[in-house]
Computed example of a mutant assay.
Amino acid sequence: MKDGKGTYRCGADGAWEDILTLSRDLPVCVPDCALKRDTASSRIIGGRNAQLGQFPWQAHITTEDSRGAGVLLHDKWIITTARLLQEVDLSQVVIKLGTTSLREENYIQGEPGEVFIHKDYGNGTIDNDNDIGLIKLKNKIPIGENVQGICLPTKEAHFHISHRESDHHVGIVAGFGQTEMSRISSRLLFVEVDVVEQQTCREAYQKRYDRVVSENMICAGHAEGGRDTCTGDAGTALAFLDAKTNKWFIGGIASWGSNCGDKHYPGVYTRVSNYLDWIENIIKNN
């Protein structure tokens, strides 16, 4: 139940009613999200095989001319990058959930009904700024042990993400993208990445590629390199564990980068906390 309040009974006419108020307006039922499961420690690029149910929010998305990832929210919405959804033909979009192998036929398929791209994506002077989009599915996804939405953060301080040890500074990413062998993986892989100090990341990309890392972005990788998302991973979650609830929340969405696994140029992720109002408004009004 969304607000966690109320006690209900079956009324004389067979309808549910609130014991205190006699109201028949039932509360909204929101599926639970991303409870922590044992995750083997690993320090994609540099990844190891995921087990079924370890990343129950993971979605693999293919379009007419591209492939990437998405992240299940609740049971009818998927969050991903705007880039993957631009000018997409929904009849050509295939969404697979509840699997760790693209060679298996045992998966749950999500049927896209409508897509929403942030209105400021591609309209500014900064490449890949506001790289966020939502897919509304035609039907609800059956939630279970192996398929479950990830939690969204709130604006509370304890969800803050930075390179500082006092904040969420180590995240985990999973995907079917390109590996260090330069091949697309048929198995779901995962790896831990460290959040990189914003100014360090900004200066590296500005100096070498003349690209801007905005405040709408998070950089994550590893000081020695070799841990990263890569081609085919765009749209996957940079997930963090909330110690208060023992649940995973999505802090970032894999967006762009350079030279997968290069220690000087970490992966760049859309900072989800900057778009909470946008996400809420889209879902509420659609």
Results as ranks from 00 to 15, higher is better:
K247T: 07
N246G: 01
D228R: 11
R37Q: 03
S255E: 11
H169C: 15
M181W: 11
D65Y: 15
E105F: 11
S42W: 01
Q206W: 14
I250W: 01
F176K: 06
A15W: 04
G113C: 09
G70A: 07
G113D: 11
Q148D: 05
S162L: 12
L188C: 08
D131L: 08
R271E: 12
W77Y: 06
L35F: 10
T200N: 07
P153L: 15
R211S: 15
L102D: 14
R271F: 09
N259G: 15
V272L: 13
I141M: 02
A254F: 05
E156Q: 09
W248K: 01
A204W: 07
L35R: 07
E111K: 15
P142A: 02
G252M: 13
G6V: 12
Y8C: 05
S214I: 02
F240N: 14
T21C: 01
Q92W: 00
H264P: 03
C10T: 12
A82T: 02
F159N: 08
E224R: 13
A220F: 09
G232L: 10
S91I: 00
S255D: 12
V115M: 12
R208L: 10
V115K: 12
G53T: 01
N281V: 12
P153C: 14
W256R: 09
P153F: 09
N281A: 15
G113H: 13
T99N: 11
V213H: 12
I95H: 06
E114Y: 13
V191W: 01
A239G: 11
V193N: 02
A234D: 13
Y265I: 08
D32V: 07
S101E: 03
E105N: 14
F240T: 14
S273W: 06
L188N: 05
C219T: 12
D131I: 08
Y205I: 10
V191C: 09
P31A: 00
H118N: 11
L85T: 02
E114T: 15
S185G: 02
T39H: 10
R211W: 14
D120G: 04
E105A: 04
Y121A: 01
L85E: 02
A12Y: 10
T7L: 15
H264F: 09
G110M: 05
S42G: 06
Y8I: 05
R164A: 14
I172L: 09
T62I: 15
H74T: 00
V196L: 03
I143T: 03
A174V: 05
G149M: 10
A50G: 03
G171K: 13
V30C: 03
Q51P: 00
S42E: 07
S182V: 07
C230N: 08
P56K: 03
T81P: 01
T154L: 03
T231D: 10
K244N: 15
C10N: 10
E114P: 04
G14H: 00
A234I: 09
E165D: 15
F190P: 03
V196T: 09
L72N: 02
S23M: 01
L84T: 09
V191N: 09
N128S: 11
P112A: 14
D228Y: 05
Y121N: 04
C33E: 01
A223C: 04
D233R: 08
C230I: 03
